[in-house]
Simulated scan of single mutants.
Amino acid sequence: MTNPLKRSLVDIALEQIRQRIDNGSWALGERLPPEPELAERLGMSRNTVREAVRVLAFSGVLEVRQGDGTYVRARTDPLEIMLTLARGSIEQALEARGVIEVEAARLAAQRRDEDDIAALRAALQASADAHGLDLEQYVECDLAFHQRIVDSAHNPLLSELYRYFSQVIGAGLRQTISEPGRPQPAFDLHRQLLDAIERGDADAAGAANRALLI
C-alpha cells in the first residue's frame, strides 16, 4: 500500500521541479544536477527525488540518459494536460474537437491520395458494422475513422495532436451517444463526409464534419 506521506513529498518534489523548468532555471535540453545535489536543492531525500524524476521521465518532461544524466525534454507535462482536458465539459470538448476536425477534413479533401481513400472506406465500413450495436466498439471505430481523416491531411503535427486528444473525445462520445433524448448525428453524414473528401470538395467536407458535431 502506498505511503500517503511519501506520495505527498513526491508531489512537492514534482511541483518544485516543474516550477524550475517553467521559470527557466532549467532550460530545454539542459542537464539537471546530479541526484545528491538535486535532493539538497529541493530539501528532499534522494529516494523522493528519484521517484519524482521517474514520474516526470514517464510523462516525457525529463529524459534519463543512462551514464550521462537527466535532461529537460519538455516544458509541458502531458499528464497535466490530460487531466485538464478531462475536466472540461462535453460542450467544450465538442468545440475543441470541431476546431481540429473541421479544418482537418478540409485539408484532407485537398491532399488525400488513393491510399487514404481506401483506408477511409475500410474505416467507415468498420464503423458502419458497429453502429447501433456495441457502444464501445462503435466509439473506437468512429475515432479510428476520424483519425484517418486527420491523417489524410498529411500534417504529422495535426495527426499527433488529434491522437493525443482522442481519449477525451472518446469519453465525450460515450456520454453523448448514450444520453437519453440527446440528438444523434445520422450515420449518413459520415458517408457524405467521405464522399466530399474523395471528390476533393473542401467546403462540403468541412460542412459535413461540422454537422456531425451539432
Rank of each mutant, 00 (worst) to 15 (best):
Q19F: 09
R20D: 13
P36G: 05
V139M: 12
N3W: 06
A202H: 09
G88F: 08
G98W: 03
R163D: 07
P36I: 04
I100V: 15
R7V: 14
A109W: 09
Q125G: 07
S59H: 15
R31E: 14
P78M: 06
L194Y: 04
I197A: 04
D115L: 00
A202D: 12
A96S: 09
A126P: 02
C141I: 01
E140A: 15
M82K: 15
L124M: 11
L5H: 12
I90H: 05
P4D: 06
N155T: 10
S59T: 15
A27T: 13
E114M: 11
F145H: 13
M44D: 00
E160L: 14
R106E: 14
G60A: 06
P36V: 11
M82N: 07
A171K: 14
L133D: 13
T76M: 10
S45L: 07
P183I: 07
G181E: 04
E103L: 13
I177N: 01
R97Q: 11
L94P: 00
E114W: 06
L62G: 08
G98K: 03
R112T: 00
C141V: 01
R112Q: 04
A96K: 04
H146P: 07
I81Q: 11
L83D: 05
L14E: 05
G67P: 03
L94Q: 12
C141A: 15
I177G: 00
Q110G: 03
I17S: 00
Q184D: 03
V72N: 09
A96N: 11
S59A: 13
L5M: 08
G200E: 01
T48A: 03
A144L: 08
G67D: 06
A196P: 06
Q147W: 10
E179D: 07
Q184T: 12
W26K: 10
E101I: 01
E114G: 07
F165R: 04
G43Y: 10
I81A: 11
E101V: 07
H190S: 12
L189K: 11
G88V: 03
A86V: 02
T76N: 08
D129F: 04
M1F: 13
V49R: 04
L42D: 06
E91H: 08
L135S: 01
L194E: 05
A130C: 09
G170M: 12
W26C: 11
D113I: 00
E80A: 14
P36Q: 10
I90P: 00
V64F: 02
F187G: 06
V150I: 15
P185W: 03
E160H: 12
A153M: 10
Y162G: 06
G98R: 08
A153Y: 11
Q192I: 04
